[in-house]
Nucleic acid binder design. Sequence first.
DNA 1: CTGAAAGCGCTTACAG
DNA 2: CTGAAAGCGCTTACAG
Lengths: 350, 350
Amino acid sequence: MPASKKTTQAGTGFDLKRPATINDIARLAGVSKKTVSRIINHSPLVRQDTREKVEALMQEVGYVPDPLARGLAFRRSFLIGMVYDNPTAQFIVNMQYGALDTLRNSGFELVVHPCDSRSPNYIDGVRRFVQQQKLHGVMLVPRVSEDQALADMLAEIDVRYVRIAAVSMDTPERMVVTHDHDGAAEVADYLQSLGHRDIAMITGPRDYRSSIERTNGFISGLQQRGIELPKARIVEAGYTFESGVAAAEKLLGGKKRPTAIFCGNDEMAAGVYRVAMRAGISIPRQLSVVGYDDSPLASRLWPPLTSVRRDTRDTGRISAAMLLQPEDAPRQLASVRPHLIVRDSCQPPD
Amino acid sequence: MPASKKTTQAGTGFDLKRPATINDIARLAGVSKKTVSRIINHSPLVRQDTREKVEALMQEVGYVPDPLARGLAFRRSFLIGMVYDNPTAQFIVNMQYGALDTLRNSGFELVVHPCDSRSPNYIDGVRRFVQQQKLHGVMLVPRVSEDQALADMLAEIDVRYVRIAAVSMDTPERMVVTHDHDGAAEVADYLQSLGHRDIAMITGPRDYRSSIERTNGFISGLQQRGIELPKARIVEAGYTFESGVAAAEKLLGGKKRPTAIFCGNDEMAAGVYRVAMRAGISIPRQLSVVGYDDSPLASRLWPPLTSVRRDTRDTGRISAAMLLQPEDAPRQLASVRPHLIVRDSCQPPD
DNA sequence: CTGAAAGCGCTTACAG
DNA sequence: CTGAAAGCGCTTACAG
């Protein structure tokens, strides 16, 4: 079956079986292909009426420039890469949706590249990916976004990138900052306002910047309200459900239990729920719990989990938009702010 | 900063700043570029020693053919598209991981394309995506995989595709079948073996093939064991948590409650948990529950949910592999079989 | 088994 | 503001 074109090409007497090329447009419009090229690339060096005539023709014929040919000539493809190392599924998918929101109808497409940042040569893998595909730009999602060696490599091969991270760690035009410090501080505020004084925290791994920021934000938020978070009340875990279970067992197995626990993400909060359930500790009556991420899991749990929402889709949108901006665009750091979603997992202590 | 090559190119005296091209290889090897091209494309028409010499050189220089140039000449890119319409995040992500498992080091990359199959012109959107990018092939994930109009469009524009679906609905080389009927039948077996007789089901939407197969598989599985599933015990929902809640309220609000409920997916099972929790109905003591998907949610819930696992990552792997096979490869239908994962959400009825 | 010529559909560099 | 020539890095079609 031959490739066929649905578009009616009435008026031009033009009805090829194959897709139109820049040559067809040039011939039909009676201009050189260079002029058509200028119009494709939004060069200002085209007379207004010429531009309009050619654009009308392209519309009518359904002409779209071939990204492979353009990519070959430009020495750069029309692909945006998204590089990440195993965040939760919902986070990845939201980031992809967000990026695609801005890529849609831009002529760019999204190529996904999960990788294992603990593997010794993962940076080489990313380099091959970027260079072979001649990517137009790369989105770096936590936690690979925090790897300075990766960023250095990308700078060295001269490819644009955007890093999504809890705090700024690069030039402004390369950063989207998620302010995890503030999200955690808001939790501190909230728990204090409910009257909690003996509070604990289950943190993510200490080599994740998000984890450091959430921990420090929580500690300093409490401090500002006159509450100390003793070392013994801070347990490090691995951002996973299972590690949350283990951490909760430590915190809830002692003689004196905290009245509230803040978890570095929802998965670990689910671990706290599990332990509380098994131990017959009632949430929120005997124990208040707060998570971070506001994943779907938060509202599936019982009682529904109070959690810090991050607008991941929006983060993806913004990141992709930064990569599409012209090189000489005003360079400013982008921000996405977290905010607390209150559900039923907290109440004042007895 | 100039693009740089890390690879040492000792021995050849070859050390360009730019990546090597087919011309460099040809010149250095003392053969024509056509011969190099033959080697790249694994043509048999090359003498063994020529091949070895050139391949060694390519290795040494770190030469990789430019996919943009190859794509332009072939009139087909080295991109695989994945088209889907809003399944759960974990399902999408696993499918992507699976596809990337087989694409890794193949020279192909994965381009993602979520879409809204209820939108009137979504098929047009997919067509533009496929044609503009000159995709090498397309993976169709449920439920868009069930849309015959979409498949027809792809066949018409002559692009390879693979449909992932509950049953075969296309030529064998275009199908990966997930046998949802059998998965549901296994649940029927299991519940019957526990002694349940008054059983209910919450189904997905009736216009999803997966939903139809799971429902029919469950009904006929029960029938084979001598158990009828009355119409009143079948409630249709929307594969979402909220719709699961609503369906569970219907089933659990009546005078005589079923002793077991099979849900078309885990999200709806979580809805049953929610209603049972609120109504003080104990799972599994007073009510057994089974889900489908074996999502992470299944093991986060309390009690952990018995569910049907589908090997989604494997499905992705197989689907991508089918798209990479040569056109003339043996064409046979691929299968992925579901199986029941027993946890703590079921027990014999009182 | 190997190669010289032409072409894929665009853009860059230069000229006017 | 517009265009003719050369080139991006490959493959196809043809010839030997």
